[in-house]
Amino acid sequence: MTISENLTFFTPDATSNNLATLIDCGISAGFPSVTEDIEGEKISLDDALIKNKDTTFYAKVKGQSMINAGLNHDDLLVIDRSLEATDKKIAVCYIDGEFTVKRLRVQNNEIWLQPENPNYPIINITEDNDFMIWGIVTNVIKKV
């Protein structure tokens, strides 16, 4: 586990045999439906959420700069370092000694880090910044 001011990183445990039960009958979000015998198969959330195990990490969100993108404080991000960083992707970036998660804006050979909360400023990346796109967010795990 690595801790930054804005994110806390975790590495998936590929040797873990922690399996959850998948109930694949469709859970109604409208009117309740009656199901007599619910049976489920065992699935690995790592297998369901991670395509590239060697390049994927988890990180917990700290702060509120991405709330309008559905990323809230303490949400768990699934981040793949092997994916291409393109315009409009949500990325974990390293900038001037800190990690942050923002939406990428790539236009006219410029990179901007766009928060999804109007209370936070847009960051224009210049040659003066120590900057690296660390990975692309592929999934978000939320507590309810």
Rank of each mutant, 00 (worst) to 15 (best):
D24R: 10
T56Y: 04
F10A: 07
C93R: 00
K62G: 07
I79P: 03
I27Y: 13
I123H: 03
D75Y: 02
T15E: 13
S82F: 08
R81K: 15
S44C: 10
K89G: 05
L7D: 05
M66P: 01
A59E: 02
D37H: 09
I123P: 00
I90A: 00
P32S: 06
E84N: 12
G135L: 00
I43R: 04
T8A: 00
E110C: 07
T126A: 06
D46A: 05
V144L: 11
D24H: 14
I136L: 08
D96K: 10
A85G: 11
N52S: 10
D130F: 12
N72Y: 14
N17R: 08
I67G: 01
Q107H: 14
S4C: 05
D80F: 12
S65E: 03
T55F: 10
L83W: 02
A20T: 13
H73T: 04
I90G: 00
A91D: 02
I43E: 10
P118G: 07
V92D: 00
A14E: 12
D130M: 12
D37N: 11
T11D: 08
W112G: 02
E41W: 02
G26W: 12
H73W: 04
D46E: 09
Y94D: 03
N52C: 05
C25D: 15
T55V: 06
W134H: 06
L45K: 08
L83F: 08
P115T: 12
E98L: 05
G70R: 06
Y58T: 03
K53D: 00
D13C: 07
N52P: 02
N108E: 14
K142C: 05
M1F: 02
S44T: 10
I122G: 03
F57E: 01
I133M: 11
I67T: 08
A29I: 14
I136F: 09
N139I: 04
G135N: 01
N119T: 09
D87N: 15
A85D: 10
I50M: 08
N108A: 11
Q114I: 15
R81N: 08
F99K: 01
M1N: 10
A20Y: 15
G135Q: 01
M132K: 15
D96L: 08
I50Q: 04
I125T: 11
T11G: 01
L71R: 01
A85S: 15
A29L: 15
I123G: 05
V78K: 00
V137H: 05
T138W: 06
A59T: 01
V106S: 05
D128L: 13
M132V: 11
D130H: 11
D54G: 09
N139W: 11
G63P: 04
A48K: 14
T100A: 08
L113F: 06
F31V: 03
I141L: 15
A29P: 07
D54L: 13
E127H: 06
I23K: 12
I122W: 08
L22E: 14
N108H: 10
D87A: 07
N109P: 00
P115C: 12
A48M: 14
H73S: 11
